[in-house]
Computed example of a mutant assay.
Amino acid sequence: MLENKTITVTIDGVPVSVPAGTTIMEAAETLGVHIPRLCYHPSLSRQGSCRICIVEVKDMPYFMTSCSVEVSEGMEVRTNSPEIRQARRDIIELLLDNHPKECQTCERDGNCELQRLAYSLGVRERLFEGQRKSFDIEASGTSVVRDSEKCILCQRCVRVCSEVQGVYNLSQQSRGFGTVVTPAHFQAMDESVCVQCGQCINVCPTAAFLEQNHTEFVWQALADPAKHVVVQTAPSIRATIGEGFGLERGTPTTGRMITALRRMGFDAVFDTDLGADLTIVEEANEFIGRLKTGPLPMITSCSPGWINFM
């Protein structure tokens, strides 16, 4: 049967056996060979649109996208030949030539996949002048900022919105320099069916999607002696925020978190533990009542994205 069939291929001179249906990229990773990519994401469908992951396959007249092409018996692949590296540089140069020149002030500076690829491939300057795409930044939304000039049309956001979240809010519209990822009828995010889940932000390789940043407003409030500033944290924060500071996953950080917030200048720190516990009690009581008299099912969530989705 197909699921039990094993395919033997050679990647950069090293033979490897993998299950049938494995892509070239996946086969390469079993050997520890990393193939650059932009549109690829392990949780999403295969796209093959960015072309960064191209490889050479013996007896094939053109480069092939390793993220979407499955291996075949006896296939011989080169992932890092001079021709492949030059082709990848050409693609990155073209992307950068149609990209804003503000890496040093961009919020994703140092955490941008396009920037990292440019550095790793030795792309240090822009080669072409001429027409570039031009879009206004949509920063009026409740939680999402959309900067379409930084979009590279990888469609990760489109796929995560439809395939994972099931919202189908984003799609690619127009053509040429006017091509843009947007809600239907070019609506603003808050006017569309967007549920504010933030997954488009999580998968975006550049800064085309960002969360609203209110950090400066908080600092201004803390610096105002006329304001009594409080912070209220969700129960999950104390067990997760430590990961962002290099602590082992699940490390309790309640005391350190409160100390840090007080040192920042917050006048009081509150926890929603009691409110969460009361909510659970009420949910249990309601469920018992519905179990006897209906209606069912009963769906509950404290996630704004889930509530918006429903």
Rank of each mutant, 00 (worst) to 15 (best):
K101W: 05
Q104K: 15
R256K: 15
V14L: 09
I7Y: 10
E149M: 06
R156I: 08
P15D: 10
R159H: 11
L94M: 15
Q212G: 03
L95F: 13
V195C: 01
R263T: 05
R146E: 03
E70K: 13
E191M: 01
T259F: 10
V69D: 04
G178Y: 15
L31K: 12
L296Y: 03
L296M: 14
Q165N: 00
P42K: 09
G246A: 01
T79K: 02
G250W: 02
G178F: 14
R249D: 07
F287M: 13
V145M: 04
A268N: 05
V69C: 06
F309E: 00
V269P: 10
R51Y: 06
C151F: 05
A284I: 09
I237T: 15
P295T: 07
T300N: 12
V77H: 02
A28Q: 08
I237Q: 13
I237L: 15
R146H: 13
S17V: 09
I24Y: 05
M257K: 09
L291P: 00
A208W: 12
G122K: 12
T251P: 01
D190I: 05
G110C: 06
F186W: 09
A118Y: 08
R132S: 08
S120W: 03
P304K: 03
R37F: 13
G13F: 02
I258S: 00
I152R: 01
T182G: 02
F287A: 14
P183Q: 06
V180Q: 09
S45I: 05
D190Y: 07
S72G: 03
C154H: 01
E191A: 10
V144T: 13
P100N: 14
I280V: 12
L44Q: 07
A87N: 12
T251E: 04
T179G: 00
P61G: 01
P42Y: 07
V123S: 11
Q131S: 09
G178P: 03
M60F: 14
T142C: 02
R51A: 10
Q155T: 13
E125G: 07
V203F: 03
T179D: 01
P15L: 06
E125D: 15
C103N: 06
N4L: 09
I7E: 11
L94T: 15
I152Q: 05
P252V: 11
F266T: 10
T206L: 05
N169K: 00
P15Y: 05
R156F: 08
R37S: 12
C194T: 01
D277C: 01
R89Y: 14
L2R: 15
N169C: 03
G130E: 09
T206C: 08
E125H: 15
I307G: 00
G255Q: 13
Q115S: 11
T215H: 03
L274Y: 08
N80I: 02
K227H: 10
R124A: 06
T233Y: 03
L2A: 13
S303I: 00
H185I: 02
